[in-house]
Nucleic acid binder design. Structure first.
Lengths: 191, 191
DNA sequence: ACCTGAACACCGTTCAAGT
DNA sequence: ACCTGAACACCGTTCAAGT
C-alpha cells in the first residue's frame, strides 16, 4: 500500500484540493473525501475543525505571499515601472509551483468562498492589490483598469482557446495586455 | 393581506432571486423560501420540478436577449464599429430594467451555476459574445481582450469604489475602458 | 389546480468510546 | 494521538392524500 508520503492531514488537504477544484466546494461531501482516504467522516474532524477550515489551510500560504507582494508595492514609488513590476511578480506567483491549482480552485469557487473566512481574506487581498496598482490615480477609470489587469492574469487561463498553447505563452499574453492597461493609469487628462 | 399582485409561481421567483443573490444559491434553502411565502416546501415542487429549475426560469429571459445580441453581431461586418456597438448594446442590457439583478445574481453564483444547466448555457453565451467581439482576429491577445471587455462591463459594478457614483457613470467608465481594449483587436502587427 | 404531511437518503457536525 | 459508531438537525426530493 504505502499510500503516500505521510500524515493524514496532508493527504486530506491533497484530496480536498483536488475534489473541491473538480466539482466545487459544496458539491464535494466529507464522506467522499473520507472514503478516498479509507477513513471515517468523523476522522476528518480530528484534523480540521470544520469543512471551512480545510479551505483555510489551503489558502493560508497563498495569503501570505500576497501580503508580501502588497507590502513590497507599498514601499515603492507609485510609478508605471512599479505597477509593471507588481503585476509581473503577481503573474509569476500565479504560474509558479502548485499555487496555480490553489488559484484555479479559488477562481472556481469564488461564490461559496464569500461566506468562508478564507474567501473574504482572499477578496480583501485582491482589492488591496488592485489598490496598489492604481496608487496615485484614484479615478474610477483607473480603479477599473487596475481590476482588469488582475483579471487579465486570471482569465488568460480559460479565455484563451488556442491549441497547444503553453503556460508561458499565456503568461506573456496576459502581461502584454496588462501592461497596456497599466500604462493608461495615472495619465494626465482624460484622453 | 393581499400579499402581492399574483400567482404563487411569480412570488416564488421573486423571493428566490432575492435570497439567491443575497446569500448564494446553496446557502438558501427551499424551507427558507417557502416560509417567506407561507407555504410548505413541498408546495414549491408543484410549481418547479427542482431547485435548479427555479434558476432556469430566472435566467431564461436573459438567455434569449443574449441570443438576439449574438445573432445581430454575426450579421454585421467584423469591424471596430461593430465591436463598439455590440459592447454598447450589451452594457445597455446589463444596466436596464430588472436584468441587472439577474446578472448580479449570476455574477455571485458562477461556480454553483457551472453544474446547473442554466449556468452552462450562460457561460456558453458569454463565450459566444467574446467570440463575436474578436471576430476577424483569433490571436490569443485578441481573445483575452475580448473577454476583458465583457469583464469591464461586469466589474464596473464592484471594482469601482467612488462615493455617490451613479449607474450611468459606471456604465460610461466601463464603455470607455472597453473601447480602448476593442480598438487593439484586429490591429495589424503586434505593436 | 393547488397544496399538505410524512417519509426518503443525504449532508455537516458532535461526542463518547475505543486503541 | 488518532480514529470509530452512532446520533443530531438539516437538506432537496417524492408522493399519496386532501380541498
Amino acid at each position: 500500500m504505502r499510500e503516500t508520503t505521510g500524515g493524514t492531514r496532508e493527504r486530506i488537504q491533497a484530496v480536498a484540493l483536488e475534489l473541491f477544484t473538480e466539482q466545487g466546494y459544496e458539491k464535494t461531501s466529507l464522506r467522499e473525501i473520507a472514503e478516498r482516504l479509507g477513513v471515517t467522516k468523523a476522522a476528518l474532524y480530528y484534523h480540521f475543525k470544520s469543512k471551512d477550515e480545510i479551505v483555510t489551510s489551503l489558502v493560508d500560504d497563498r495569503l501570505r505571499r500576497m501580503d508580501e507582494l502588497i507590502a513590497w508595492a507599498a514601499d515603492q514609488p507609485p510609478t508605471l515601472a512599479t505597477r509593471r513590476a507588481l503585476i509581473g511578480r503577481y503573474a509569476d506567483s500565479m504560474f509558479d509551483g502548485d499555487l496555480p491549482q490553489v488559484m484555479r480552485f479559488f477562481e472556481q469557487n469564488q461564490t461559496v468562498l464569500k461566506s468562508l473566512v478564507a474567501g473574504q481574506q482572499m477578496r480583501d487581498r485582491m482589492m488591496r492589490l488592485a489598490h496598489q496598482l492604481c496608487r496615485g490615480d484614484d479615478s474610477p477609470a483607473a480603479q477599473l483598469r487596475a481590476a482588469l489587469t488582475l483579471f487579465a492574469v486570471h482569465s488568460s487561463w480559460f479565455a484563451v482557446r488556442a491549441p497547444g498553447i503553453t503556460d508561458d505563452e499565456r503568461k506573456r499574453i496576459a502581461l502584454q495586455v496588462a501592461d497596456e492597461l497599466l500604462a493608461k493609469i495615472g495619465e494626465t487628462g482624460q484622453g
